[in-house]
């Protein structure tokens, strides 16, 4: 039978905010692979690393202008345009997990608030979805030991989004930098300490070369998700089934990313501990308490903005309604782990 002449695929340009060697570039590739496969080759995504077309922090402007059709990033990277941006990932922690907060986006009214912020309030031509619910992010990397709030005072510390406001109110001086610039900034002395996100990404850019103390557990970014951005025209010009593939591909990639993160993050944490000479500890309780207090002190000032206030209220309500179920219902997994693998949980 004569071959059916295949139509040339539609090509979308998608840039990430990550450097090519970061594990998150693979996570973005997981999404791309799923979309291409589901579309039967009708849709192709040209995936580019940060800086290929525009800088990491410029992707929101670039997608809005149509310089890029799509971007793979996090919302905290454009919170200079509106602080409420940070609520879609790097927001106050009310006790709900990352998965629960992804639920807020899809079931608790978050998506509509996101649309209102980007399209109505800021007038941007973008469509956004949240994906992969990240594991809570470590407090990060320090040159020496830190035991108390007093120890971290005056540090130049790297984080992003509202976490920056949080640590500033705790007496740190905060700088926001894209992931690829963290280690050079440590070497230059622009910053003294930093967090990025997870053992694999941190290892990939060489955190262990510039600091040896890694603190797990923190409330500064306990429930972040990837942000998938699409230029409105690039998206709406597609057939409805392709739009659906782009949209639900985000959900599919969340499972793929979670599975891969499980395997890789844990292996890389082991590597950091055993091979790279990194001392891994849990963040001291005093600092964790101070973080929660800092969140509640920070909010009233930010809530002077009407949208910010509505958005936080919606998150707070969602957390109150759902998180108790997860918390009350979950068995103590540590107990079982300790039973079968005794002694491994000690830090």
């Amino acid at each position: 039978a004569p071959a059916v002449l295949a139509q040339a695929p539609i090509v979308l340009k998608m840039q990430t905010s990550w450097s090519a060697s970061n594990i998150w570039q693979e996570f973005a590739q997981d999404y791309v692979n799923r979309v291409e496969e589901m579309s039967g080759g009708r849709l192709k995504i040209d995936l580019l690393p940060a800086g290929a077309v525009v800088a990491a922090f410029q992707v929101m402007d670039a997608v809005n202008d149509g310089i890029l059709d799509a971007a793979h990033s996090v919302s905290a990277y454009w919170y200079g345009k509106n602080k409420a941006a940070s609520l879609f990932g790097t927001g106050p922690v009310f006790g709900a997990s990352s998965t629960a907060m992804l639920g807020w986006f899809y079931e608790g009214g978050g998506a509509e608030l996101y649309r209102e912020l980007t399209q109505d309030i800021m007038g941007l031509d973008v469509i956004g979805f949240l994906g992969f619910p990240m594991f809570a992010q470590p407090f990060g990397w320090f040159k020496g030991e830190v035991n108390s709030v007093a120890d971290i005072e005056g540090f130049k510390y790297r984080t992003v989004g509202l976490a920056a406001d949080l640590f500033q109110s705790m007496g740190m001086s905060v700088a926001q930098l894209p992931g690829g610039e963290i280690v050079p900034a440590m070497e230059r002395g622009v910053i003294d300490a930093f967090e990025f996100n997870n053992p694999s990404s941190d290892k990939d850019f060489g955190a262990q070369d510039v600091a040896k103390n890694y603190y797990l557990s923190s409330y500064h970014q306990a429930a972040e998700q990837f942000e998938f951005l699409f230029n409105r025209f690039s998206f709406e010009d597609l057939d409805p089934d392709l739009q659906a593939i782009l949209k639900y591909g985000v959900e599919a990639s969340a499972t793929a990313n979670t599975s891969k993160a499980m395997r890789r993050y844990s292996a890389d944490l082991q590597w950091l501990q055993n091979e790279a000479g990194v001392t891994v500890r849990r963040t001291p309780k005093e600092i964790l308490d101070a973080q929660i207090n800092a969140w509640s002190e920070l909010l009233p000032g930010l809530e002077e903005d009407d949208f910010f206030k509505r958005c936080v209220a919606s998150q707070r309500e969602w957390a109150e309604q759902v998180a108790f179920y997860e918390l009350m219902n979950a068995p103590d997994y540590a107990l079982a782990y300790e039973h079968f693998f005794p002694g491994k949980l000690k830090l």
């Binding site: 402007d61 200079g80 309030i121 920056a164 406001d165 500033q168 926001q176």
Partner: peptide, 22 residues
Amino acid sequence: KYAARSWQYGEVSVNSPAGVPI
């Protein structure tokens, strides 16, 4: 166009929480 958009949402630098206008 680029600058006008920035004025419209009162953009501040994303590099620090100091809120330095850009």
